[in-house]
């Protein structure tokens, strides 16, 4: 076999030999993509379809499975806990996405200087939250935000504000979880934006500076528009991630972990799913919640598709 590391030479030196178009060669592509399809099929697609199936039953994991048709869905739409979970999930999502994007935009702009010293160190330290475990993060933040003994409330008391019970209150707990999510993803998002910003040629900024545009105007008129597609991308990934928030609410309330507190103030949809399925032994009802989640994802993916085609057309 001719050396493959020097193909150019071998074209001229060796006679052309046709590749054996054997059976092995023909199926090679399918073999290469097979692992993904097999694994996703078994552990992704089949469970998804099965969720639809189980949702039609009253399925006790250690008892009987009784077919109930669309009863679980009827119950779901009558269930204030479901709408509470939707509200919680949406609220946490807004509170975590908006500040995150704004901060990431600003910090990316700050990082986008050619002569910035310690650039690598800055970038790396911003990625540290991303590699921190979610469980560890929750324990630390819960303590920092504690009502009686947390540092944040202590700081607030210094300026005369009454202590806020973040964990027990609805908006407080949403803020707390949003703070955790923002902390974790801000650095990652910043780097994404930074990359897009660096794709903008320096001359554009220079020309604007010569024309008298200050830093803020450069930001508004050059940076932000060039970031539009990646902003849309991060909004969508943040949404899909936001629908799956589970660990933070689970660990916030050790005395009522599955409901995230006595009034389910921070129970997200995925936590509600887990609570009903594995906590209350109602696999059927839990699966119905799963179906509802799936519908929401499809809707959001659809919106994203429309948005991104619109953005592309505008360019």
């Amino acid at each position: 076999m001719a050396t493959l590391l020097d193909p150019v030479q071998s074209i001229h030196s060796a006679p052309a030999r046709p590749v054996r178009e054997g059976w092995g060669e023909r199926i090679a592509p399918y073999v290469y993509i097979a692992p993904f399809f097999v694994i996703f099929g078994i552990f992704g697609l089949v469970p998804l379809l099965f969720t639809f199936y189980v949702a039609l039953f009253d399925w006790n994991p250690i008892g009987e499975h009784v077919f109930v048709g669309l009863d679980n869905f009827r119950r779901l739409f009558d269930d204030p806990r479901f709408f509470g979970a939707v509200r919680n999930t949406l609220s946490i999502w807004v509170l975590s996405t908006v500040p995150q994007l704004i901060i990431a935009l600003l910090v990316a702009h700050l990082l986008n200087h050619v002569r910035l010293r310690f650039a690598v160190l800055f970038r790396m330290s911003m990625l540290v939250p991303y590699i921190t475990s979610v469980a560890a993060t929750t324990i630390v933040f819960a303590q920092l935000f504690d009502r009686d003994y947390g540092m944040l409330n202590w700081l607030l008391s210094l300026v005369g504000v009454d202590p806020v019970d973040f964990v027990q209150s609805t908006w407080g707990s949403h803020l707390l979880i949003a703070a955790m999510v923002t902390w974790r993803w801000c650095g990652y998002t910043t780097l994404l934006y930074l990359a897009s910003l660096q794709a903008v040629p320096r001359e554009v900024y220079e020309a604007a500076a010569v024309d008298g545009a200050g830093g803020w105007q450069q930001f508004r008129h050059i940076s932000v528009p060039s970031l539009r597609p990646v902003i849309v991308f991060t909004v969508v990934t943040s949404t899909i991630g936001g629908l799956q928030i589970f660990t933070e609410p689970l660990l916030l309330n050790p005395s009522a972990p599955l409901t995230c507190g006595p009034i389910r103030q921070c129970q997200t949809l995925t936590l509600f799913l887990y609570e009903q399925g594995f906590g209350q032994f109602q696999f059927g009802y839990g699966s119905a919640i799963g179906v509802a989640l799936f519908v929401m994802v499809v809707v959001i993916a659809g919106i994203n598709y429309l948005l991104s085609t619109r953005v592309r057309r505008e360019r």
Binding site: Q143, D146, R147, D148, Y149, N253, P254, S255, A256, P262
Partner: peptide, 11 residues
């Protein structure tokens, strides 16, 4: 203070 929380312990 709800029972078995860290605030309960501290209290």
């Amino acid at each position: 203070q709800s029972s078995f929380t860290s605030g309960w312990n501290a209290g």
